[in-house]
């Protein structure tokens, strides 16, 4: 990504589905290369639709997505996608799941084994490489999925409420692990969540979407907290509280509107 300022740019992206439902309207924002940007918004505001457009899984009805300054056609080959749902293949062991992307891309057996063993260790799954997904806890399955995406070393990581299904403690541990992996990696992260706490803790910038339908960008909030961050310590700081408050005051009205 040398010489590219924005890894991702959305230009007036509008997505209208077959039934005439407009999920997002006129979304414009950019994600600087190497930064961690979160998109928050009330449930059903089309956050995932935005992410799917950047992934190339869904094409904008009007507007366009630029990846490294080039208009995106088809799937985004520069991006890895960590889904909200469980996406591990139940018939593959932890090791084979981690190595799936390598196998698909034609990496040889030996190299695959070496890298996937290394990655299993990096996400704390040393003793579980031969286990099947159903034998793991929710947190371990997410760590496997994280390793599966990260092992292929994509420039961009797209994350769709990846820790939404985890309990609070496990989620906090995953935050630390994600920051540990990301720090110094130079990767660009676009992170979608409805959890403002999570967004502020992890990100350089938080983008707030309005309630759907035809949801649009309500505001962009830089998070100037020092890095490297420890998620727990970060939440204790006064700056954190101030940033959280200013974003929440914008988000609150939308959340209430979403429930109305």
């Amino acid at each position: 990504m040398d010489g590219v300022r924005d890894a991702i740019a959305l230009e007036s992206v509008t997505v209208t589905f077959g039934g005439g439902y407009t999920a997002v309207a006129d979304i414009t924002f950019a994600v600087p290369a190497g930064s961690f940007v979160s998109v928050v918004g009330p449930t059903g505001c089309g956050k995932s639709t935005v992410l799917n457009c950047v992934a190339g899984l869904c094409a904008p009805t009007t507007g366009q997505v630029l990846v490294a300054d080039r208009p995106l056609r088809g799937l985004n080959r520069a991006a890895g996608y960590l889904f909200q749902q469980d996406t591990l293949l139940p018939w593959k062991s932890v090791q084979d799941n981690i190595a799936l992307g390598l196998q698909i891309n034609g990496v040889g057996q030996k190299e695959r084994a070496r890298l996937s063993t290394e990655w299993a260790a990096r996400v704390g799954l040393e003793g579980f490489t031969n286990s099947y997904p159903h034998e793991l806890s929710g947190g371990m399955r997410k760590r496997t999925a994280l390793a599966q995406v990260w092992i292929t070393e994509p420039d961009i990581l797209l994350m769709d409420e990846p820790f939404g299904a985890l309990d609070v403690q496990t989620r906090q541990i995953m935050h630390s692990e994600l920051l540990r992996l990301w720090t110094g990696s130079g990767k660009t992260v676009l992170f979608v969540t409805h959890d403002l706490d999570e967004a502020v803790t992890l990100s350089d910038e938080v983008i707030v979407l309005s309630a759907g339908p035809a949801s649009h960008v309500l505001g962009r909030y830089p998070v100037g907290l020092p890095r490297p961050r420890d998620p727990i310590d970060t939440r204790m700081s006064t700056e954190y509280g101030e940033i959280y408050q200013s974003i929440w005051s914008a988000l609150r009205a939308e959340v209430l509107r979403g429930y109305a």
Partner: peptide, 22 residues
């Protein structure tokens, strides 16, 4: 599940690889 297919496609799977792995 749709997510299994999307995940494999994002990892670079071709149609043949989708059939084989998923």
């Amino acid at each position: 599940r749709r997510a299994l297919v999307d995940n494999a496609r994002m990892l670079g799977a071709t149609e043949t690889q989708l059939v084989r792995h998923v």
